[in-house]
Structures are given as C-alpha cells and as structure tokens.
Write a protein that binds this DNA or RNA. Sequence first.
DNA 1: ATTTTTCTAAGTATTTATACTTATTTTTAG
DNA 2: CTAAAAATAAGTATAAATACTTAGAAAAAT
Lengths: 222, 222
Amino acid sequence: MGQTKILLADDHELVRDGIIALLENEENLTVVNEAANGKEALEIIEKDTPDLLIVDIRMPELNGIEVVKKVKKDFPNLKTLVLSMHDSTEYVVQCVEAGADGYLLKGSSKEEFLKAINKIAGGGKYFSGDISAIIVSNFVNGNSEKRVDTNSQKQDAALNILTKREKQILELILEGKNNQEIGDELKISKRTAEAHRFNLMKKLEVKNLMELTHKSRELKLI
Amino acid sequence: MGQTKILLADDHELVRDGIIALLENEENLTVVNEAANGKEALEIIEKDTPDLLIVDIRMPELNGIEVVKKVKKDFPNLKTLVLSMHDSTEYVVQCVEAGADGYLLKGSSKEEFLKAINKIAGGGKYFSGDISAIIVSNFVNGNSEKRVDTNSQKQDAALNILTKREKQILELILEGKNNQEIGDELKISKRTAEAHRFNLMKKLEVKNLMELTHKSRELKLI
DNA sequence: ATTTTTCTAAGTATTTATACTTATTTTTAG
DNA sequence: CTAAAAATAAGTATAAATACTTAGAAAAAT
C-alpha cells in the first residue's frame, strides 16, 4: 500500500511541530497539512483529501468531536484519530458516538501513537488501554454505535461561539459573582443566569470555575 | 562549544516524545533525560547535571515555577526554559521572578523554540513576543529582578498565615479540584479537605473561588 | 516534657451549583 | 415574512459548598 496522507489538527503549534517531527521518520506516513482549529481542518479536508485526520479535542472555533461528526457524515472514507491532550476520559463516549476510529490519551507513548495510526490507517480501530473499559461499559454488544444510557439529545454546539449575553455572564462569573448576584445585576432571574452559566460552560467544555478561568484566558475572551 | 544536555519535564508523554523528535536533528542538543513531574525533574537534575531544563508549568507533584525556583537556588548554573503549553500570559511575572531564563507560549513555532533554546544555552534570555511587553510593564529598569509594585510585604505575611497543608490544598483548589478529589488525592476525608478549604479562605479573607485566584496571584502563592 | 499548633474529621443546617428538560417570548437573519 | 437562534425562566433531582462547631490525634515549638 502507498503512503497515508495525514492532516494534523491541534491549536498548539509546538505540539503539531513535535508530532510532525515524530512522524518524519515513518516512511509510510506523511503529514500533508496542519490546522489550528476545527473550521480550518474541515476546509483543508475538502481540498487535500487526506486519508487520516489526527485531531485534538479542544480547539477554538469548532472542537474535535464536532469535526469528527462532520467528517463521518461528509467524508466517510476519512479515518479519524482523536487525541485527548488535555483531559482524561470524559469525552470518550462522545467520540465513539461521533464515529472516531481511535482515541489516545495524553499519557500515550510514541510507540502507542504509531501503533494506533497504523492500525487505523489499515482500516482498524484503536482505543488506548483504559479507554476500552469505558467503552465496553457504555455500549451494548459489539455490533453498533448504540448507547446504553440516555444522554443522546446533547445540544448541538455546532459553533462553539458564545452569544453576547453569555459573554456578559461569563464576565460576571469571572468577577466572582454567583447566579443570584448575576441575576440581580442583569435584572434577570437567578434561574436564567443559571441556564446561561450552564450553556456557556458546556460550550467551552469546562467542568468547573478554574477550567473556566484558564479557558477564558486561553481564548482571550476576557 | 560542546553539546547542550537537556532535561525535558512535561507530564504529557506524547508532547515529550514530539519535542525529542524535534530536537533530534539538532546536533548541538541532546535530550539526556525526561521527567513527568516536578519532583522527578529535581531528582534527575541531581544525578544527571543537565545544562538546560525545559519545563512545563502545569505538572503534578510540583509545578514548573516551583521547580525553577528550586533550581535557581540549588543549581544556579542550570538554565531554564519554561513552556506554557496550556495557558497564556498569566504566569509570566512569576516565572521571571523565579529566575527563568526563558518563557515560550504554546503558540510558538519550532523555529522560535530552537532559537530560544540556543539563545539560553549560550547564556542569554528568551521571552516570546507579547511576553516581553508584560515583563517590561512589571519590572523597573533592566538591572535586576526587582518588582515595581508594592505587594512585597504581603507575600511573607500570607505565607506565614497558611500552613503547609493549607498551601497544598490551595494548589489543588486552583487546579479545579473539588473537596472530594482533593481528599482522594491527599488520602484524607472529603470533610477534612472541606475544613482546610474553609480555614484557608477565611485566612485569606476571600468569599469565593474567583477572589481566591486573584488573591493567590496577588500574594504570589502559586 | 508539655503546651501549642496543625491535621484530622464528623455533625448540622443552609445555600448554591450541577445537570438536565421543557417551554415561552424575543431577536435576528435568510 | 418566516424559520432559526437567543434569551428568558421554571421543574426536578442530586451533588457540592458554606458556615460553623466540636474534638481527638499527631507534629512542632518552647
């Protein structure tokens, strides 16, 4: 078989450069292009038609899971390997449902990384060690991508962009205000403030205040 | 001049592998060892005596800034380059005060990375683009590591106020951990973590997480 | 050797946040 | 003008944090 054309999508340039250097020695693999966010990745896919997409979950504009979903719908021949560089196991189930062919944690070694790429390029699937356990406990049988539990109606966060109101609420959250105080300040109910908080945290894929502060700085939302 | 012996400290194995691959082509540089956390880094430094430490800020056990501080105290000849792989500019001032010889953001390219390494290995300093602006606005003159603003007295006070355990718990709080997770990590009950949290917040006179982050940065506790 | 501090942790009550779902109204864009 | 997106807000259940108090061990300081 010929060369596997890889598209690398990650917002960390240094990480991308590192991975490219890592793959340079592999003669059957070529990184044909790079993307710094999800939107860019989709644009490149259309014109470069790579064989394999290596994609980080957390990216601005459009996150890795959404990219995988779109890829599997519009380019079913393109294989996808998801890298969870920042988190542990929380997104596994979502990735499998999105149709990812593989999932690697940040803790993976170069060897495992190469093994995963080659397996996926050859039409297989690869999920690193502890990931498999999560998958089998979340899916019935080996037959299809049907989930056991209920959360299938997840909000379509197609565009990971905060609305005006959400940004306003984010600012107040970062000032240390609670939902009641935010509600008072904006003359909305505490419950509305709660809803906005919930939605914006989901959009930014953070699960607590500290992650929210870091993410906000990262995205220069503040 | 001979080869520069590099120690690479980052908790992401894949990132380490990538960086190693990136430096493999450089004949004047060798990565002699790797560390997955701050403690490990310090242990390796003692026995391997590298010339340059490339260190990520966020690491378990001991964070990058603390490692730099200890290095500058105990091994003043060892150069240090801090990589801020996850965050933007928040820790810059702390790094400079800790004595770091360079600071690179996640957005840096391979070229900038190599430039930084070579400059620092040659006895220089390197701070990427926008970082310099932050530094000059925080330090007077080019002469020494003296800070412009006034909060120099506060640091000791607060450091004296918080006990060792409380500082430990503060760090975990600032990593976004909840009481249960802190309890698990330190092998104490969730209720004890709660108690420590309560006490330290009282001592620092803050009433929520955001005030706590601000106060912690102000007092340079982190 | 003994005070004092720190660390541990449970009790209790109250408040706040999380994790959703549903649903109406308002705004905006095609 | 109409469909889609955003803003509003309540329901429900669960989890976590807050605000204390008390109190026994372990460690540190005198």
